[in-house]
């Protein structure tokens, strides 16, 4: 008697499983409602948005009065605004242009880690006075071979 009971107990889970497994007509379980995956928006990489030249900047590093012609004794500012976030290297290459020849005036780099749009300023001055003529400043981003922005200006 005891032996039969034990066998019955031992078999019952198998039978139960078998019964469940054979219910072919049972409706499929309702789909589990899952929340939509959160939208993952990658932060925009840094880009140069605006370059403005002038002979003075404010505390916000922006040029108040844009100019494209300067005097020999001016300090020349290039205010460079960026959008996006992350680490970046901004390089300003100032050149004197005469016909098809160019002479490097200065090259300065800012390495920054932007967490929001930034305003950056580059400036050059020449105590002995700028030679009259045509100039340009090119703003490079990272190791790019072509400038992100170019501004031409004159002295004289």
């Amino acid at each position: 008697m005891m032996k039969k009971t034990l066998v019955g107990l031992a078999l019952s889970p198998v039978l139960l499983l078998g019964t469940v497994g054979c219910k072919k007509d049972a409706p499929p379980p309702p789909p589990v409602a899952t929340a939509a995956p959160p939208a993952t928006t990658l932060p925009a990489p840094i880009a140069v948005s605006t370059v403005t030249l002038g002979n003075a900047i404010g505390a916000d590093k922006k040029v108040a009065v844009p100019a494209e012609t300067f005097t020999a004794k001016d300090t020349i500012y290039a205010s460079v605004e960026t959008t996006g976030v992350g680490q970046a290297r901004l390089r300003a290459l100032w050149s004197f242009v005469k016909g098809d020849k160019t002479a490097k005036v200065d090259e300065t780099t800012i390495e920054l880690n932007a967490v929001a749009p930034t305003v950056n300023e580059f400036h050059v001055s020449k105590p002995s006075g700028w030679p009259a003529g045509d100039y340009r400043v090119e703003i490079f981003l990272g190791d790019a071979a072509t400038p992100a922005a170019t501004k031409a200006f004159k002295v004289g």
């Binding site: 300065t108 920054l112 930034t118 305003v119």
Partner: peptide
Amino acid sequence: VQSGASSTAPAASVYE
């Protein structure tokens, strides 16, 4: 020629 630069970004480093 004398030059310089600065940024509103925190801890930016500047070099010529």
